[in-house]
Design a protein around this nucleic acid. Structure first.
Lengths: 253, 253
DNA sequence: TGGTGCGTTGCAATACCTGCAACACTCATT
DNA sequence: AATGAGTGTTGCAGGTATTGCAACGCACCA
């Protein structure tokens, strides 16, 4: 691990919180201003940070472009997208696609609800890993050691009274999800929002992604949402089949 | 500029082209394998690169999350979004929002067309800077020296017969756009797609962003699209007003 | 069994990074 | 107008952190 690079990269999450000037960056890195300046200059040359008119630094445009390319390289996304759209056209609710990577679960695709009430979420945003239905599916597929290790490491914020409270409860939930092959989040993240989710598997049976349908109570009750479960699972299986090369696409574009 | 950081950051665009193994990265950087390994490890620790199961490296999830936060910090996007949605609801076509930064113009928001025929574009993707209507508006606002310098620096790919062919033509087009306060792209990027665009200005009158409406010939002719110009300009002006704090939001969420 | 192609590790040499101190500049304040 | 505080910036000497090498471990294949 390279100290210089390590410091430089530490600047990025720092700037993600908002613009900062040279002094602030230097302080938070714990280095001299001149050192911070040179690191920032290097980041600037690569377009990862931008210097706005008030001289402060913020994250740059190339970072966004890079992330864009990163997502285009995720072929699961390309394959799944039309299926997600079709599911949304059928049920009208918000549809998400998520993957697991290095202790994080994040949304990589989303089709917005066609109801006026929408839920907040953004592609690229890490999800609430201890409560989200897609997170449960992705983590349930890890080995038991990995699950235990991760469960201990996590925080368990009580978003609502029904949030997963601690590692034990989380591990039990993962075991259940692993068993049944699907997952729900019934008001564990936001009081009035429910989700049902199903796993997408690669050729070797490992879970490579998970998809979910989310809707607020004011639109459908949890019970009504659960009636969609068979459809969600079928859609996930279709994507699995196409991803692992078993089935060709039904509606090639 | 720090050599170590410079090398490390050079890995990112390289991996954006697709996954690569250690040897490939070392070769393209022109350094020893062990050096490349240590740089990759540092990038890995920060989540910017991910090591997939076949040991090859690709861009990591945190990069996507960072870019997400970068976009959320762009307040022009937050302000403009509801206006873009409303414009889309009215006319049904694809609506884009773009900004200029360091010789690049890129889309930072998009509302999809409600017609079945959609155009390809992605948030975060740099736009075809010599032909896109939004690019013309953003560049037209630069000082004359900046415009000349940039015009010389650019490439002028002939996407179609109507693409801007050279610096002189581009500078003339920018002068015209600067004069009239709006811009078009009539088949300059893709033969059958037309756009009309209008500038969004900050309190000091400088152009901070540009928005456009795009539609393929098969849906509306160029002339029909131009009838939307007043509406597009009005929307852009509304956003300008709100951004510069002159008008409060009309429909606060 | 031996060979090839990977990724990985310890080490010595030195290139590169660091922090310092002085400078340039803007902006308030007097 | 002059002073001062707060920025960001530059050159430099010292020494740390980075580099490339060479050797090793390992998987795969012949």
């Amino acid at each position: 691990m390279s100290q210089t690079v390590d410091r430089a990269l530490s600047i990025l999450p720092l700037l993600a919180e908002g613009p900062a000037d040279l002094g602030q960056v230097a302080d938070r890195l714990g280095v001299h201003k001149s050192t911070a300046l040179r690191l920032l200059r290097t980041l600037h040359e690569h377009g990862l940070v931008y210097r706005q008119s008030d001289q402060r630094y913020r994250l740059g445009a190339r970072l966004i472009a890079l992330a864009q390319e990163a997502m285009e390289n995720l072929d699961i996304r390309e394959i799944a997208h039309p299926h997600l759209v079709r599911l949304n056209e059928h049920c009208g609710h918000t549809v998400h696609l998520a993957v697991y990577e290095e202790d994080e679960v994040l949304y990589i695709d989303k089709v917005e609800s066609r109801y006026p009430v929408r839920m907040y979420s953004r592609i690229g945003k890490p999800v609430a890993i201890t409560v989200a239905a897609v997170a449960k599916l992705l983590l349930a597929d890890l080995s038991e050691q990995e699950r235990r290790a991760l469960a201990e490491k996590l925080d368990y914020p009580m978003y609502t009274a029904r949030s997963t409270p601690n590692p034990d409860a989380f591990l039990r939930e993962l075991a259940k999800v692993r068993e049944q092959g699907w997952a729900t989040d019934l008001g564990g993240h936001e009081e009035s929002i429910n989700c049902v989710a199903a796993p997408i598997r690669g050729a070797d049976g490992r879970v490579v992604a998970a998809m979910s349908v989310s809707a607020p109570n004011v639109v459908v009750t949890a019970d009504e949402l659960l009636t969609l479960l068979p459809l969600v699972r079928r859609t996930a299986d279709d994507i699995s089949g196409e991803y692992s090369g078993r089935n060709p696409a039904k509606n090639p574009v």
